[in-house]
Simulated scan of single mutants.
Amino acid sequence: MKFFLWGSEKLPNRPKLLDLFQGLLGGTLAILTLEYLTIYSSSYFIMAPFGASCVILFAVSQSPLAQPRNVIFGHLISAFIGLIFLKLFGDSIFITALAVGCAIAAMQFLRCVHPPAGANPLVILLTASQVNYDFSFLLFPVLSGSISLVIIAYAVNNLLSKNQWPIYWLAFFNDKKKE
């Protein structure tokens, strides 16, 4: 059984030093910026799933999951679904699970899958008893924070990488088939 044979898989290549530095710099700068924006403004710019977004933005920036459309709309859509479920159905364990499933399906359907965004309904529904959520949460921290992450990723990824980032921005209609 191949599953139990340790060492039979091939690990990915070890990242280059510049790639490690890009992840270190990008993640640090992004979270530090969101924290300072939160401290020096009257609004929140940061939430826990943004840490995972930084991993994707700075460690695998060429992935479709790391493109601005996916980061911004993935977070926005999944947080919206979390808020809708909270307002309509409350915060039971079944509703929480269903909200995450619906967020995943919506991101797939709208072609903006961003795995860290799948945590947004969890953040909303698991903390609903401590936080009074309203739809302004979509602006601060969800939209403002995800746009800030994209701006920082643009600067860091294009400064340090030989690959241009992003591969695409916010394309909505790209279904034309090449003949």
Rank of each mutant, 00 (worst) to 15 (best):
Q67S: 08
I72M: 08
P68T: 02
Q22N: 12
F45M: 14
I77R: 02
V71M: 03
K87R: 07
L57E: 02
G26M: 07
G82S: 02
L83P: 03
I56C: 02
L88M: 15
L18T: 13
T28W: 14
M47D: 03
K16I: 05
N13T: 00
C54P: 05
G27V: 03
S43C: 10
F80L: 14
G27W: 04
S42Y: 14
G23E: 00
F21G: 09
L29V: 14
F85A: 11
S43T: 02
R14C: 06
L24H: 10
N70L: 04
I31E: 01
M47K: 00
F73S: 03
L24I: 10
Y40L: 11
E35P: 01
P68Q: 09
F21Y: 15
F50L: 02
Q67I: 09
F21T: 02
L24C: 12
I77A: 12
T28Y: 11
I46A: 13
L86A: 12
F50W: 03
A66D: 04
D19L: 06
V60S: 14
L25Y: 02
L24M: 08
A30D: 03
G74L: 11
M47W: 00
P49I: 01
I77G: 02
P15Q: 09
L57I: 04
I84S: 11
G27C: 01
M47L: 14
I77T: 01
I84K: 13
L32D: 01
M47R: 06
S53A: 11
P12W: 09
G51I: 03
I46H: 11
A66M: 03
V55W: 04
G51D: 06
A48S: 14
L18R: 11
L76K: 02
I81A: 10
G51R: 04
L37G: 10
L29H: 05
G51M: 06
V71Q: 08
Y40P: 07
H75V: 04
E35I: 08
L29Y: 06
I39K: 11
Y40I: 00
P64C: 09
I84M: 15
Q22P: 08
I84C: 12
I31K: 02
V55Q: 02
